[in-house]
Structures are given as C-alpha cells and as structure tokens.
C-alpha cells in the first residue's frame, strides 16, 4: 500500500512538473517553432553533421573506415595546393563582395533618393537579369571576354590593340568580373532597405548644421546604412567562396577555387573524408572572416563619429 501511494505521489509530482513546463512561455515558444525547427534541423543541421562526421574518417577505395582520425585535416592543412586554393577563393570572394557593394551602393542610393514614384519599377528592372539561368549569364561573359569576343573586337576596332588579347578570359579576373555581375542585385536590396529607413529629416538637420552633401553622407547616411552594407557583403561573400560553376567556365587553370577541389575529392578523387575536411575548413574560415568583417566595419563606423 505504501509502495502504491509512493508511486501515485511520484506520478502526480511528475504531472505537476509537466504542467508547469508546458505552461511556461519558453516551452510554448519552443512548441510553436518546433515544426519549422525540425524542418531546419533535417535540411540544414543534419547534412552538416554528416559532413563533419566524414571529415574524421578515412576512405579505402569504396569502403569508409569509421575510426576517428585527424589525418584528413593534416593533409588539408599541410598540402600547399589546398592552402593556395583556399587563399585564392577567399581573395576572390572578398574582392567580389567589396566590388559588388561599391557598385550596388550608388544604384541603391539612386533608387532610394531619386526613384520618386517609380521605386518598385526600378527594383523590378534590376531583377530582369535573373530571369535567365545563372549558367547562361556566366556563358555570356565568355562571349564578351573571349578571344573573338565583344571586348576584343571592340578594342581592336578602336585601334587600342592590334590582335585579340587572351588576358581577359580564363583567369582570376574573369572569375571576379563574372561573379560581381552575377551577385550585384543581391547587394542592392539590403542596401536599398537600409537607405529607405534613413529619416530624411536627419539629412536636413546635418545640412542645417553646416554639412555639405558629401559630409552629411559620410557622417549620417553611411553610418546609418552600415547594417545594410554588412549584410550585402556577407550575402555575396559567403556563397561566392564556394562557387565552382563560374571558375569552371571562365576561370581556366588560374581561376580554380576551393570548391572545385572539394568536388574532385567527392567524385573522381573518391576521397569523401578529405573532401569533407576541406569543406569543414572552408566553412570555419568563412565564418571567421564574416565575423571579422562585421567587427571591423562596426569599429570603423564608431570611428567616423
């Protein structure tokens, strides 16, 4: 009898605990987001975990040896080829994102400040290049930059060069140009949104206090739109590090990036663990770089005041 009483007492205590847990706001919050949270878990976290797991294993032809080892990381970090490819990828993505922001800012500024009643039309026009496939857009740069391309014939027609130059296509610069063009519109939107949020009276106040247009831009508009600039940089930088279509099509031998090496390990190289280790290293480096960009820009923003 005592045992039964104890059991029922324990059960009721359990019920009470469950009751308060379900009634707490935190629990309700978690319950509310759980479907989407599970969805995100399956589609985002699980694949990453699979990749991380693979990076600690080894592959012997077709079988995966699941003993824990750091061998893949040793190879990935010591082989000069991977270091060079990673460095080049970072260089390209950083250059592309900075160029993109420099190109996108004036566009966003124009639309926001001088777009008048046609702001949404302008934004619509900017999306037009995206109606064609990414591949086609990359291919069209091949037409522009190639040996018999638009650029070469144009320059020859103007008499600036005598014979077609081979220096436009199949190198790092070709990759940078193509990626910058492909991602420009993605940078316009966050910058546009942050410009729209700038209270125009603040610019009048700056003018009233003696600032000309350039000064008020540097002291008011730019600091207030830094969040937009940061997100534009990240939106472009993070995916371009891992791009492998563009380097493959216009990069030639000098434009190979880390993603191509990763692809090779997963396919022809048949070394999934090494590919996984390279992926994990790339992700880590991109995260660190993104965080430091955010930090540096925030600090610079504070300095401008």
């Amino acid at each position: 009898m005592t045992a039964a009483a104890e059991r029922s007492g324990a059960a009721s205590a359990h019920r009470i605990r469950r009751g308060t847990l379900l009634r707490s706001e935190q629990a309700q919050g978690i319950a509310l987001i759980s479907p989407t949270f599970l969805y995100a878990l399956i589609l985002l976290v699980a694949p990453v975990l699979v990749v991380i797991a693979h990076s600690f294993w080894t592959q012997d032809f077709l079988t995966i040896d699941r003993t824990f080892t750091l061998e893949q990381y040793r190879i990935a970090l010591t082989e000069p080829i991977y270091r060079d490819l990673l460095a080049r990828s970072l260089y390209i993505s950083l250059t592309v994102s900075i160029l993109t922001v420099f190109l996108a800012y004036p566009i966003a500024y124009y639309i926001s400040f001088h777009g008048g009643a046609h702001k949404s039309l302008w934004l619509f026009v900017i999306t037009i290049p995206f109606w064609t496939s990414y591949l086609l857009r990359v291919m069209s740069w091949k037409v522009i930059l190639g040996y018999n391309g638009v650029l070469n014939s144009g320059l020859m027609g103007l008499g600036i060069i005598d014979e077609p130059s081979t220096s436009f296509l199949y190198n790092t610069n070709a990759v940078i140009i193509t990626l910058t063009h492909a991602w420009a519109a993605f940078a316009v939107l966050p910058i546009f949104v942050s410009l729209e949020k700038v209270d125009r009276t603040l610019l009048e106040a700056a003018k009233d206090l003696g600032d000309g247009p350039i000064r008020s831009f540097l002291r008011v508009t730019l600091p207030l739109t830094l969040p937009g600039v940061i997100s534009a940089l990240l939106i472009v930088m993070i995916p371009t590090v891992g791009d492998y279509v563009t380097p493959k099509l216009v990069g030639g031998k000098d434009g190979v990036m880390i993603a191509t090496a990763i692809e090779t390990q997963f396919k022809r190289g048949a070394n999934w663990p090494l590919g996984a280790a390279l992926s994990v290293i790339t992700m880590t480096v991109v995260t660190v770089m993104a965080a430091s960009i955010v930090f540096v820009i925030r600090q610079a923003g504070r300095r401008v005041r």
Binding site: L202, A205, K207, D208, G301
Partner: peptide, 27 residues
C-alpha cells in the same frame, strides 16, 4: 542651408540616432 546663419529645431527633433547627446550637440 548649410551656409546660412540660421539653425533649426525640427518638429521631429531629428536627433542623430547613432550618436550620443554630446556628439549630437557637437555635430
């Protein structure tokens, strides 16, 4: 406006949100 000997107190006050009081006044 930036070269006139006038200054304005705006209806919305137009306080620079990214600056503190000192920095606003010293602007």
């Amino acid at each position: 406006a930036n070269r006139r000997p006038t200054n304005m107190v705006f209806q919305s006050y137009a306080i620079f949100p990214h600056l503190n009081v000192d920095q606003n006044v010293a602007y």
